[in-house]
């Protein structure tokens, strides 16, 4: 019997597909809809201390091989978000709470609130490429990453996942910093900092000028990051970036990921994507006589 069940640092999921942060995860009911559509777990939108409206439109550009977005971290603030988490958890979903802040103490405070709301793990957004003072601006400095992870680890008992940016040449040092500080898992990658100019209008399309590129265009970057990190850390890695099919997921798994996150694929393929990826992986395991997906993790490494 082929099993898709995975255990990421103590978080057990029936399958390896996770709804990525920032994708329909702003309300409890939409988190639940992704879970019911077949996701093994769902990550919330990144939540901060206070309500934030985000940037004005355009916040998304559709490109042939992906999306470019700069939403600007819109979120209702941690206090109002409790009821959303509760709704998803009560509905049976395994919820991972994503948080963002500009300093370690606030990350710790937000994570502790998320734990109280009932999430199964927290994910630290150290990788949003387009919000000044947040995300990637912190996540490219191994010292800062270490400090944040240490502070969060002290404030919660649930697993701490750290979502990293590919927009750095120091990805190995940063992955090592996460591990050294006691981080339980690394999620890689967030979007790639990018922009698009309308030649007709003669100006950048996104209101924020810069945004993050996602979708099939970034998959080879994500696979490379996971592969590099797998060689230097022992903690589990969750792969993300451009996964739309079971073959994409398997590529990340062979690179070293134990699970995968899906985001843009929902827009391009629909919510059925979770079931399709899982079905394909299961069929692959059966056809090869492999009992568990875990046997394939990192097998592309010599």
């Amino acid at each position: 019997m082929a099993s898709l069940r995975v255990n990421v640092a103590g978080l057990v999921m029936e399958n390896p597909t996770i709804l990525g942060s920032g994708i329909i995860g702003e309300t409890g009911e939409s988190l639940l809809s992704a879970y019911k559509a077949g996701a093994g777990a769902v990550v919330t939108k990144s939540i901060g201390l206070e309500a934030r409206k985000g940037y004005s439109n355009p916040t998304l550009v559709e490109l042939p091989f992906g999306y470019l977005n700069a939403m600007g971290l819109p979120n209702p603030g941690i206090e109002s978000f409790g009821e959303e988490v509760l709704l998803a958890v009560r509905g049976g979903a395994t919820v991972i709470g994503s948080v963002f802040a500009s300093e370690a103490e606030v990350f710790a405070q937000l994570s502790s609130k998320m734990e109280a709301f009932g999430v199964s793990a927290v994910e630290l957004n150290l990788s949003c490429p387009h919000a000044s003072g947040y995300g990637m601006e912190l996540g490219v400095d191994p010292g800062v990453v270490r400090e944040i992870v240490l502070a969060v680890k002290k404030s919660v008992t649930i697993p701490v996942f750290v979502k990293l940016t590919p927009n750095t040449h120091r990805i190995i040092e940063i992955a090592q910093a996460v591990q050294a500080a006691g981080g339980d898992s690394i999620v890689a990658i967030n979007t790639v900092k990018a922009m698009a100019i309308s030649i007709e209008a003669g100006r950048p399309i996104l209101s924020n000028i810069f945004g993050g590129l996602s979708g099939p265009a970034v998959k080879p970057i994500g696979v490379r990051c996971v592969y590099e990190m797998y060689d230097v850390v022992d903690i589990p890695i969750i792969g993300a970036g451009g996964i739309e099919t079971w073959q994409d997921a398997l590529e990340y798994i062979m690179a070293g990921a134990v699970a995968v996150q899906i985001g843009s694929g929902i827009g391009r393929r629909g919510l059925n994507i979770f079931k399709e990826v899982n079905f394909g992986l299961e069929r692959y395991l059966k056809s090869r006589g492999i009992e568990s997906l875990g046997e394939l993790v990192g097998t592309a490494h010599a």
């Binding site: 994708i23 329909i24 309300t27 809809s33 998304l60 559709e62 999306y67 985001g263 929902i266 827009g267």
Partner: peptide, 17 residues
């Protein structure tokens, strides 16, 4: 609305986009 393509979640009503 923000994205128009069903990913950002801004326009949801009871979990429907």
């Amino acid at each position: 609305m923000r994205c128009g393509v069903g990913i950002c979640g801004s326009c949801v009503i009871n979990g429907k986009r």
